[in-house]
Amino acid sequence: MIDFWIILTASLVATTTAILGCFLIMRKMAMIGDAISHAVLPGIVIAYYLTNSRASFPILLGAAASGMVVTYLIQFFNQRVKLQQDASIGISYTFLFAIGIILISLFSNDVDLDQDCVLYGEIAYVPLDTLTLGGFNVGPRQVWILGTTLLIIAGSVFIGYRKLVLTTFDPAFAAAMGVSVVLWQYYLMAGVSLATVVSFESVGAVLVIAFLSGPAATAFLLTKDFKKMIYLAIGFGISASIIGYYMADWLAGSIAGAIATIIGVQFALAFIYIQFLRKSRISETLENKVLT
């Protein structure tokens, strides 16, 4: 049963992040997950300071708020200051992370808090923290939280699909049609903040970042249809979760590490596959030319 809960947890995170990752990659914002993982620190510290507890709900709220702040800053630097996307991401999250560190040192007398306790959630512990409803044990708390998050994200993307695709592919044309590019940018980023922050708590930041960019990148290599790219990315994320889990079990190693490794292997295999395909296609056309 433990196997099942851990694989389900990873798969839920994989599905949510794969959907968002496809949009992020096409917007050249794949590293936003990395940025958010650092940028949430001040929100966490402030939430902790205000409530004086490590209860996860206020902390999640603080983290999500910081996630939105960093999204706003990135947008601001990129659009208003005309800084490149990657530079905007870099400067925004290091700035917020620095503020978080300063806050920690300010409150240091009574704070035993560091990023690790929130961000480096350990997937292996997920089955231990179960939820009881009306006297019944209904499974791990995280599975419920992640399941709800997935429903929210999948639903929002489904509702906004056309506008999200349009503003991703051709923002100028979208704006000319009267579609607010900035609004849909925030819509997407609100989803990314929610998904990453919730997932950090259960599977840790590194795995979330790997899930956000890896499966989407692999899928991008293999298809030229955006919808298929999303489905493929989900498939890669889930299969990496399953294979990674059993690999970690076999090696008695870190589950998150093993899953992240499989994500990398999937990408490498896809890359080799398309190189091979390209070569065989070239030699095929050459042969045809020679024959005719």
Binding site: M26, L166, T168, F169, D170, A172, F173, A176, F220, T223, K224, D225, F226, K228, M229
Partner: peptide
């Protein structure tokens, strides 16, 4: 409005039909 062709990323995974449907 027909933007300058170079203003979009033509590697976006979509078919000709998909773009015209926009």
């Amino acid at each position: 409005y027909v933007p300058q062709r170079q203003s979009v990323d033509w590697d976006f995974p979509a078919s000709v039909w998909d773009v015209v449907a926009m």
